[in-house]
Design a protein around this nucleic acid. Structure first.
Length: 197
DNA sequence: GGTAGGATGGGCT
DNA sequence: GCCCATCCTACCC
């Protein structure tokens, strides 16, 4: 992080922010800033995975070694391997003991773009650096070693922007799932060129 | 502009 | 053994 960029950021989101239902957290994360080391990006696309009856959620089939963190206290990272090659970053929501998380799908890069380009050499434009869950973790340097990390403190955090702007939110169906595909649990900043697809 | 198919490995039945 | 909360390339308009 450069000093200039730090000036653009507000406080770290506290645990109470995450201790709500998954869809509310997914919606409210839009416009917030994911920070990891020198890299940072505005969250422009999220999906809620509330668990319970939502069969698209990993946690829907109960507590397993992999989904343990999703059942734990809110404000922690859930990172898993998908398709043997890519990693996806989620933020745990809901009270401790209740499953639920939010998948971060796309960022608008605001700091450390050169570092992101090193990590994603095939990305031609800034719009391509973090426009997808697998691209996002690559650009931000997030791996399964971050699984369980507390995102209310430490090197990986989410901050409010210095000036909170009202954003127009679009709601859509989630991407790449088989079950419960019609639920309106995908949230985007309307018109952002940094969203996936 | 569009899409079909392959890469690749862990989780769970 | 099957199923993935994906991405990239090749190929075709």
């Amino acid at each position: 992080m450069t000093g200039t960029t730090t000036m653009l950021l507000g406080p770290i989101l506290n645990r109470a922010f995450y201790q709500r239902d998954s869809a509310a957290v997914a919606r409210c994360l839009l416009g917030k800033v994911l920070v990891h080391g020198e890299t940072a990006g505005i969250i422009v696309e999220t999906e809620a995975y509330p668990g319970g009856g939502d069969l698209a959620s990993h946690s829907a089939r109960g507590l397993t070694p992999r989904t343990r963190v999703v059942f734990g206290p809110p404000g922690h990272a859930y990172v898993y391997l998908i398709y043997g090659m890519y990693e996806c970053l989620n933020l745990v929501a809901e009270p401790d003991g209740t499953p639920g998380c939010v998948l971060l799908r796309a960022l608008e890069p605001v700091a450390g773009l050169e570092r992101m380009r090193q990590r994603r050499p095939r990305a031609r434009r800034p719009e391509d650096l973090a426009s997808g869950p697998g691209r996002l973790t690559l650009a931000m340097g997030i791996t399964r070693t971050h699984n369980g990390a507390d995102v209310t403190r430490g090197p990986l955090v989410v901050r409010a922007p210095a000036e909170e702007r009202p954003v127009e939110i679009a709601v859509a169906r989630r991407i790449g799932i088989r079950h419960c595909a019609d639920l309106p649990l995908r949230f985007l900043i309307a018109g952002s060129p940094f969203v996936s697809r």
